[in-house]
Structure formats: structure tokens, C-alpha cells
Amino acid sequence: MPQLEQIHTYLGQIFWLFVTFGLLYIVLWKAALPRVSTILQERQERIDEDLRKAEEFKQEADDAIAAYEKLVAEARSQAQTVIRETNVALAADAAARQDALTVRIKADVAEAEARIDKARTEALANIQTVAVEVAQAATIRLIGKDIPTDNAEAAVAAAMRERG
């Protein structure tokens, strides 16, 4: 086995191990690893910073949403108030008109009834006159005798009273 037979190469192997490994160690220690460490650290800081900013923006957005919702709620309640007030005003107006209309209708009805009464009274009066004339004409035709107007009037009035 060369590992155990080539003893004269041990010193050379170990020498070059120390030279190469020593060089590797020093360059890694002084140059390469600090650089990687810086890169990782900077990235971590950047990520933390970005997360912090995102958190801030989220907070701002939440605030804006809250303000907006508050505004909407206020507007809604204002609108409700306006609607209620308008409803009340409209109802009052309607009631007032209703009352005015009722009064006018009643007046019209009373006037109309008065006219109807007058018309009926006149009509009744006319009926009596016509009845007297009809009675006189009928008497002439039936018995050929003219009766005086006064008698005919009295007879018609008596008959009308009798029939109601």
C-alpha cells in the first residue's frame, strides 16, 4: 500500500498540506468569508427594512380605510336624517292639503245640497200649478164644465196632502 510504503513522501505531503491549507484558511478568514457575511447581513437588513416599510404602508392603508368608512357612515347617517326630516315635512304638507280640501269639499257639498233643495221646492211648486191646469183641462173634457181655478187648486192641494 503506497500510503504505508512511501514514507519518504510523508514530509512533502504534510508540508504541502500546511502550505495550501494555511493559504486557504488565511484568504477565507481575511477576505472571502467577511465578504459573504457582509452580503448576507446587507440582504437581511434590506429584507427587514422592506418588511418594516410594508408594515408601515399597511398601517397607512388601514388608517385610510378606517377614515373612509367613518366618512361613509357619517354621510349615511346624514342622509337618514335628511330623509326623516323630508318625510315629516311631506306628511305635514299632505295633512294640511287634505284638511283644506276637506273643508272645500264640505262647503261645495253644502252649497250643492242647498241648490238641490231649492230646485226640488221649485219643482214641487211647478207640479202643483201643472196639476191644477191638468185637472181643469181634464174636467172640461170629461164633464164639459169649467171649474174655477181656486177650487181646482184646493182640490189638488188636498189630494197631494192625502198621497203624502
Binding site: 513522501t9 495550501t20 477576505a31
Partner: peptide, 26 residues
């Protein structure tokens, strides 16, 4: 006897690769 052997050559290649990765890579 500290002759530069095939073993030493591989060590040199090894550290060259590592340092290239760690220094040129970053």
C-alpha cells in the same frame, strides 16, 4: 524531501477551486 507531488497538485487545485467559488462567485 518536500517535492511537489501529484498530491500537492491536487491540494493546489482544491484550494484554487474553493477560493474561486468564494471570491469570484461573490
Amino acid at each position: 524531501n518536500i517535492s511537489f507531488s501529484n498530491s500537492a497538485l491536487m491540494m493546489v487545485i482544491t484550494i484554487t477551486l474553493i477560493l474561486m467559488l468564494m471570491i469570484l462567485g461573490t
